[in-house]
C-alpha cells in the first residue's frame, strides 16, 4: 500500500489491519474478512474438510500469536503474510504421508475432469480424473505446488505470490510456467507409468 491509500482511506481493509493493533473489534473483523479465503485455499489444497479446518485453525492461531511481529500496514501486506503462513502449514501437513493418502482418497471420489477442459489442455482426448490431477500435483516439488496453489487456489497475483514465498515476481512467473509444464507432462504420461505409489480404490466415477 502506498501513502495516498493510507491517507485517502481507499483500502478499508487496510484500515482494519492498522486498527487491529489496538482494537479487539478490528482484530475480529480482520478474522471475518480473511477466514473464508483462507479456508477455501486450505480446502482446495487438502480436499478433506476436517483436515482443512484443522489447518485453517493453525493458520489463524499462528497469525494471532505472531501478529505483533507483522510489520505491514495494508490489506495486501496482511493477505500476503497470512497466505504465507497458510502455505507453510499446508506444506507441513502434506509432508505426512497419511495426509497425502487421505487427500488422494478424496480426489478419487471426485470423478472425472470435464473433457472439454482436459482435452485442449493436454492436447489429448485421453480421459483424466481428479485423482490423476491431484497425484501429479503432489508429486511436484513443494515450491512448485505452492506457486500453482497460490495462483489458482488462492487467486494471488505474481507480486503477491512472490511476497508470500519471498522470491522475485519474475521468478514466480517463470517457476509457474515451468511447474505447469511439468504438471502437464505428468498428466500426459500413460496412467500406469505415471504413478510411483499405488492408486487408491476409485470411488464413484
Amino acid at each position: 500500500m502506498n501513502d495516498s491509500q493510507k491517507t485517502t482511506g481507499s483500502d478499508p481493509v487496510g484500515d482494519v489491519v492498522r486498527a487491529a493493533r489496538t482494537s479487539r473489534e478490528a482484530f475480529g473483523r480482520l478474522f471475518d474478512f480473511f477466514y473464508p479465503p483462507i479456508f477455501a485455499y486450505c480446502a482446495r489444497r487438502l480436499l478433506v474438510r476436517a483436515v482443512a479446518e484443522d489447518v485453517t485453525s493453525e493458520v489463524f492461531l499462528k497469525a494471532s500469536a505472531h501478529f505483533r511481529d507483522f510489520t505491514g500496514d495494508s490489506s495486501e501486506d496482511f493477505r500476503r503474510w497470512v497466505f504465507r503462513i497458510a502455505t507453510n502449514e499446508i506444506n507441513a501437513e502434506l509432508r505426512k504421508s497419511i495426509r497425502r493418502c487421505e487427500m488422494l482418497e478424496a480426489a478419487a471420489r471426485m470423478g472425472m475432469v470435464n473433457a472439454s477442459v482436459s482435452t485442449p489442455l493436454l492436447e489429448s482426448d485421453f480421459p483424466v480424473d481428479w485423482e490423476d490431477v491431484v497425484r501429479a500435483l503432489v508429486e511436484l516439488s513443494e515450491r512448485e505446488q505452492s506457486i500453482i496453489s497460490l495462483r489458482f487456489f488462492a487467486g494471488l497475483q505474481h507480486d503477491e505470490i512472490a511476497a508470500a514465498l519471498e522470491i522475485e515476481p519474475g521468478t514466480s512467473r517463470v517457476a509457474l510456467t515451468r511447474a505447469l509444464n511439468r504438471l502437464r507432462d505428468r498428466l500426459r504420461v500413460p496412467d500406469n507409468s505415471l504413478h510411483s505409489a499405488p492408486r487408491t480404490d476409485r470411488g464413484d466415477p
Partner: peptide, 15 residues
C-alpha cells in the same frame, strides 16, 4: 494459463 485456471476452477472441493 487460462486453460489451467479453467481446470482448477472446476476442482470439486468443498469450500
Amino acid at each position: 494459463h487460462n486453460d489451467w485456471e479453467q481446470l482448477f476452477e472446476q476442482l470439486p472441493a468443498d469450500t
